[in-house]
Write a protein that binds this DNA or RNA. Structure first.
Lengths: 331, 331
DNA sequence: CTGAAAGCGCTTACAG
DNA sequence: CTGAAAGCGCTTACAG
């Protein structure tokens, strides 16, 4: 790899001049510049961003810490973040935690060590202190999807409203035994969806039935198992709400395996819809999550915090989107 | 952010001693070490990896360049690479190209600038020269899924065999008009699958019918549109092979919208199965791709190349996995 | 318009 | 066992 020095030697100027010419940071005589550019070509010189970063104290890199990519809403979000970041000259470093607090801790500790200027995270909620600590060190933080710490920027969805409205929607379709497939309650969105569900259940005076499992919450199998659990728990189950699409797909299959027809016997819906719903054989009624908006806003928010050099820390920015109910065949 | 120097000052030793103590790179007197460790704690010092990288000439970072995450096999592969890399002390930088050669070029140029020690890529095939150039610069390259350049390491699947066997399999089920939903032929796997399909078609003496579209090849809509196209082209269509799962799911929906029953009227299968198949309402017969193996092997291969300091370049390593046919309900 | 020098935060021979 | 010095590849005041 050719370095600045090589270019300087070949062009018979000082490295500082090369630097200035290449960064357009001050006027350089056209002739000199031309010589430099020629040398750059000849050596196929590519500046070393690492060295630049070290000097400038900025890495132009954003860390993204999420539980999982496959079959989750995070795949599109991560992709959108990456695209938006790239447009602004930032690279994106992705870490999958599988919602294991230990892995999360490991990832965060790596990222803090000069890798990134900011971290976008959908966290487990178990490393809030560490995250605060990292933030106090000058690294920007934005929470996505899961707002585990109200003191930090976040881009989320109004999950409670989803849970509430979904329950009422199913009730209005005639459902009287509505089960909720949910995830760990220490993770904000699951807690909030449950709150909305529970509130509606109470208002409607019907029974609450929930299911959860130990296996990865974003898996098809999770939905399958929980659907079976709900069927066990509730004799006359006639409605199922799944927290996320993967669960809803698994639940659909579980119902089919038990010769239960959707929506005739049981109405089914997903609280986190993300494009696949409309293409399923029995298309899925879902609260469609504005995934692109979340990704773009997360990227913008974090870049803003990174580039905002005024030392005053403004109060945290919490952007909340609304999911929209899209009625399809499953309920 | 505290630096080495701060720690050295507080512990009353030279920075070099701190460095040695922290890296266990030579014996340091226990008392000294203790003082240093105490200082590290007190200042909550975290070494700056960037500076370390600059000095050591290694970044311990791998770039992953893929077309898309959402609803593709690349989501699991990227995740597996990240996990395997993390275990070996490497971070993972992800770039989505959407199969746009321009974006790909941009990503590659960024990555080459000191960001990474190696690049794992599922490329468009349009930047082979650039990739060669980057490789000659000392950056390791491993191709995954798509082997666009035989001169570089790769981890792939035997797509031709899949295409061939799938066709024969459908024929044996009684299909006589088998359509192929495929992608751009300049991307190796699509070409190879087509070759296998075509070979079988010729051997069997039946007609060839293929469909493709301009929209993103990894979308549900692609499958939907192409299925319609096949129905148009072939009166008695009785078999459909889709290159990837997302397409197969879209195709299934298209058939349903046309009141065509799977598998009674048309047999359907996916040539790139990845976990979702078994959970679909009509579970999908697929050639299951060994995604974890691909991810793990890609990570291992690239780390090996990175850490192999012997200057001799060994000849390229091409790892080829076989997809296994898993029979389910769709055919 | 351009050079010489200092420095970003580390590591690593070289002495002692 | 530890210090002093040089250097990784760049940028940026400071002079001139």
């Amino acid at each position: 790899m050719a370095t600045l020095k090589d270019v300087a030697n070949l062009a018979c100027v000082d490295v500082s001049t090369v630097s200035r010419a290449l960064n357009n940071t001050s006027y350089v005589h056209p002739d000199t510049k031309e010589r430099i550019l020629k040398a750059v070509k000849e050596l196929s010189y590519h500046p070393n961003i690492i060295a630049k970063s070290l000097k400038q104290g900025k890495r132009h890199t954003i860390g993204v810490v999420i539980p999982r990519l496959s079959l989750t809403v995070f795949a599109v979000i991560a992709q959108t973040i990456e695209e938006e970041a790239r447009k602004n000259g930032y690279a994106t470093l992705i870490c999958n935690t599988e919602d294991d607090p230990k892995i999360e801790k490991e990832c965060l500790n790596r990222l803090r060590s000069g890798f990134v200027d900011g971290i976008i995270i959908a966290g487990t909620g178990k490393n809030n202190r560490l995250i605060r600590d990292i933030h106090s060190t000058g690294i920007a933080i934005t929470q996505i999807v899961r707002r585990q710490d109200p003191g930090l920027n976040s881009v989320t969805v109004n999950y409670e409203k989803c849970g509430y409205e979904a329950t009422k929607y199913l009730y209005n379709l005639g459902c009287r035994e509505i089960g909720l497939i949910n995830g760990p309650m220490n993770i904000a969105p699951y807690k909030e969806r449950y709150n909305g569900y529970s509130k509606a259940i109470n208002e409607l005076g019907i029974n609450e039935t929930t299911a959860s499992s130990k296996i990865p919450v974003h898996s098809l199998e999770y939905g399958y198992e929980c659907a079976i659990e709900l069927l066990d728990k509730s004799e006359n189950l006639d409605g199922i709400m799944a927290a996320v699409d993967a669960q809803a797909i698994g639940a659909m299959r579980a119902l089919k395996d038990n010769n239960i027809s959707v929506p005739d016997d049981i109405h089914l819906l997903s609280l986190t819809g993300d494009r696949i719903g409309k293409m399923l054989e029995t298309s899925m009624t879902s609260f469609e999550m504005p995934v692109s908006d979340i990704g773009i806003n997360a990227a913008k928010t974090i870049i803003e915090e990174i580039e905002n050099t005024t030392t005053e820390k403004s109060k945290p920015k919490n952007i909340v989107f609304l999911s929209k109910l899209v009625k399809r065949e499953s309920s």
